[in-house]
């Protein structure tokens, strides 16, 4: 089914996630219901251990839910196999992690075009052009051929945002994207996210502890004890 403009970005129905089995089983998500529309910029708040990261990993199709409904762009991802999820992730989802974000042996440009190259099996010239444009948008056009290890923390996060945008995803999941940055770099990254969200109409779901960051988002979701409150 082709997603129409009215199709919500994602829908969760009574979603649960349990780690372990038997006596040691721990239920982290206890029945979430959530619908997100395209193009939003949503802050995901919650204390440590509330289930924030687990939810983010499930939405990123890196982790499978235990039960419930999970649909994105009209596609049922609860039953999909690994190959389908990998392809879906590549085309529709971008990530910005807190740590270990870039491939250290690759340049800034090579990191940005990775999602396209791994899909096509080759680094196309068109991809290199788009990668360079994206690096320009994040203000790093003078760092295109720098190895990832030669970039500062803030620069790495901006490269990560550019990479997340590479395949024109519908949703970018950012897990504490500014958690490791000083306040100036953090604000640069947030400004960039806000700008991209408006210009590209890409939805962002930003997991954070920081009220300042949450305040810059258009809406917020709070998780408490495995439930949306």
């Amino acid at each position: 089914m082709m997603p129409s403009d009215e199709t919500p970005l994602l829908e969760l129905q009574d979603l649960t996630k349990t780690f372990g089995t038997g006596e040691t089983a721990t239920q982290v998500l206890k029945g979430l219901n959530l619908t997100l529309q395209k193009g939003g910029m949503i802050a995901l708040l919650g204390a440590s251990g509330s289930g924030k990261s687990t939810l983010l990993n499930i939405l990123g199709t890196l982790l499978r839910p235990t039960s419930g409904g999970f649909t994105m762009l009209g596609q049922n991802l609860f039953t999909a196999n690994d190959a389908t999820l990998t392809d879906f992730r590549n085309r529709h989802i971008g990530f910005v992690f807190q740590l270990h974000n870039l491939l250290p042996d690759f340049t800034a440009l090579e990191n940005v075009i990775f999602p396209s190259a791994v899909r096509d099996g080759v680094e196309r010239p068109a991809a290199r052009r788009r990668g360079a444009e994206l690096l320009d948008i994040v203000g790093l056009s003078d760092r295109i051929n720098f190895r990832a290890t030669k970039l500062s923390g803030g620069q790495k996060q901006r490269v990560a945002v550019a990479r997340a945008l590479m395949n024109n995803p519908d949703l970018i999941l950012a897990d504490e994207p500014t958690g490791n940055l000083d306040s100036k770099s953090a604000q640069q990254v947030m400004d960039l996210i806000t700008r991209v969200n408006k210009s590209e109409n890409t939805a962002f779901l930003i997991s954070t502890h920081d009220e300042d960051i949450a305040a810059q988002c258009t809406s917020r979701i709070e998780i408490r004890d495995g439930r949306i409150s």
Partner: peptide, 16 residues
Amino acid sequence: RPEIGIMRAMGASQNF
């Protein structure tokens, strides 16, 4: 390991 994780998150398949 972390790099492999990133590659998988960016859409690299197990076969890749």
